[in-house]
């Protein structure tokens, strides 16, 4: 495959994956995942520090 064609294929795949990622993030925000992340992040994570 020529370099230009390879680059075009790569860009198309990347655009498709970026659209999917935008959809995933939107879905995650809409169903309240950000709150779950925030809640975990602002408290000491006992698992992370080795206390389980």
């Amino acid at each position: 495959m020529s370099d230009n064609r390879e680059l075009k294929t790569r860009i198309i795949i990347a655009i498709i994956l970026l659209v999917i990622s935008a959809g995933l993030m939107t879905a995650g925000v809409m169903r309240g995942e950000v709150f779950a992340v925030f809640t975990k992040a602002v408290h000491i994570c006992l698992e992370c520090i080795g206390l389980g």
Binding site: L18, G23, M25
Partner: peptide, 16 residues
Amino acid sequence: FSVSFYVLGFVLALGV
């Protein structure tokens, strides 16, 4: 939830 769409989408976008 059983999977994080929010984080997966974020990591996917950066990785792409």
